[in-house]
Design a binder for these strands. Structure first.
Length: 415
RNA sequence: GUGGCCGUAGCUCAAUGGUAGAGUCCCAGAUUGUGAUUCUGGUUGUUGCGGGUUCGAGUCCCGUCGGUCACCCCA
């Protein structure tokens, strides 16, 4: 049987790599005061139709359940978050700083950095309109990536704003109802030939040159300046560039938007997000109106970049080695001593030592080889010397005899 | 969803249209109380799948599934 396209098996080594990413995400998010939440993997399809107007339904894993409900595997978290917050908004002190690490499912053709199943860290701040919240969000993005050993030379946050483009569009005489169409044109202006952009902009009385000129003006607007100042005060200014080419595809963004890219531009976006001040109101039919902003960061592109960045790769490998290493391997040199060895194994495990031993009789050399492969730091040999055992530090090959009862003391922290 | 390239052992890859191979990994032994190297032996295949051409197909043709890259999209 083959895997379904775009889905992954996680063998122990893959699972450890995945957990490294998830644990690092959780650790940094908590450091910033974000608290973890989660929701259902399966949702009624209307939840996703409401926001997107059905455009994204073609990329959902959806089906009809046995109760005739039309359901979908979650492709994103923002609708669920909006529903949850809107339902119990008064229970939470503002601003809310919530994160989650959900597995998402999207029915798309897979390619580099994009699968049909993936994990994505989501961090959201709700109930805070101040630019301080925007800066806090960008700061946590930066520190999340720094947490993997990535630095200023490895990635950059491209900071932009829908507001800036709204004002640009209004100055040119554009109507608010045409804004979204205009954003879509701007979003593609960098990739499309100027003639094509000119043609699309003609109805608004604009030219590709005007749009590209503004796009390349790196001066911060009054909205973005305090965010930059905040990040500079934190010492994170070097990670951020103003770049009005970032518009993002979705209709619901209202203000600051940003995307994070690797400097070499080999990968697709590492993370992306922005403000969606009107979305909660939209999702709750006006019952709840909270300003909000957030971003998502997927595991697939991030893993690619870590593997291609030596310092980050080294940090990952060190973590993996620590993660899988056994503390102690008990070598049973004489099968007659197996009961005593089992007792020792049990005591070591009770004391919290990661302990392994041969389940069946095996040659000594084989057992040491196994101990080595398991990454054990210490081998304890049980044999003729009982009630003494031989304690060997595998890295240095030093051995010493110790009374079996005293072995545990070797592993206690010496205070 | 559209198009280019690619599918041979668990992995990396060979094989002019003529008997499917090597390295690696794994297992065992050399070595009955010590890890490396080395040496010896061993397991592993419906050549992705299904048709077709041919005396004969891993090889050529068609289809299909999967992978990959680009486009579309990117919550």
């Amino acid at each position: 049987m083959q895997l379904l396209p775009g889905f992954r098996d996680f063998y122990p080594d893959d699972c450890a790599r995945r957990n490294y990413i998830l644990e690092t995400w959780r650790s940094v998010a908590r450091r910033y005061g974000f608290v973890e939440f989660d929701g259902p993997v399966l949702e009624p399809i209307e939840l996703y139709k409401k926001k997107s107007g059905g455009e994204l339904v073609g990329q959902l894993f959806d089906f009809t359940d046995k109760g005739e409900r039309h359901v979908a595997l979650r492709p994103e978290m923002t609708p669920t978050l909006a529903r949850m917050v809107a339902a119990r908004e008064r229970d939470f002190k503002k601003p809310l700083k919530w994160f989650c690490v959900p597995q998402f499912f999207r029915y798309e053709k897979q390619q580099r950095g994009r699968l049909r199943e993936f994990y994505q860290l989501n961090c959201d701040i709700l109930g805070e309109p101040s630019p301080a919240a925007d800066a806090e969000l960008v700061a946590v993005v930066i520190d999340l990536l720094r947490g993997f050993g990535l630095g200023e030379k490895d990635f950059v946050v491209r900071l932009s704003s829908r507001t800036a483009w709204q004002e640009f569009f209004a100055r040119a005489g554009g109507q608010p109802e045409d804004e979204y169409e205009f954003f879509q044109i701007v979003d593609k202006a960098e990739r499309n030939p100027p003639e094509k952009t000119d043609a699309a902009l003609a109805k608004f009385g604009l030219t590709a040159q005007q749009v590209l000129d503004f796009m390349r003006s790196k001066t911060a607007t009054a909205e973005l300046a305090p965010i930059l100042a905040d990040l500079t005060a934190r010492g994170l200014g070097g990670f951020v560039e103003i770049d009005y080419a970032i518009v993002r595809g979705l209709a619901y963004y209202t203000g600051v938007v940003f995307e994070v890219f690797d400097r070499s531009k080999n990968e697709r976006a590492l993370a992306g997000g922005g403000r969606y001040d009107k979305l909660l109101s939209l999702m709750s039919d006006g019952k709840t109106d909270l300003p909000a902003l957030g971003f998502g960061m997927g595991d697939v592109v991030l893993a690619n970049l870590i593997n291609d960045t030596p310092a980050a790769k080294a940090q990952l490998d060190a973590w993996l080695a620590r993660e899988r290493a056994a503390d102690v391997y008990v070598v049973i040199a004489k099968e007659e001593r197996r009961p005593e060895a089992l007792a020792l194994v049990q005591r070591l495990r009770d004391a919290g030592q990661r302990t392994d031993f041969p389940l069946t009789a095996a040659k000594i050399g084989k057992q040491f080889q196994t101990a080595e492969q398991l990454g054990a730091r210490i081998a304890v040999l049980v044999g003729d010397e009982w009630p003494q055992v031989k304690v060997k530090t595998l890295a240095t090959r030093e051995e010493q005899f110790i009374a079996a009862d005293a072995v545990l003391a070797c592993f206690q922290p010496s205070t």
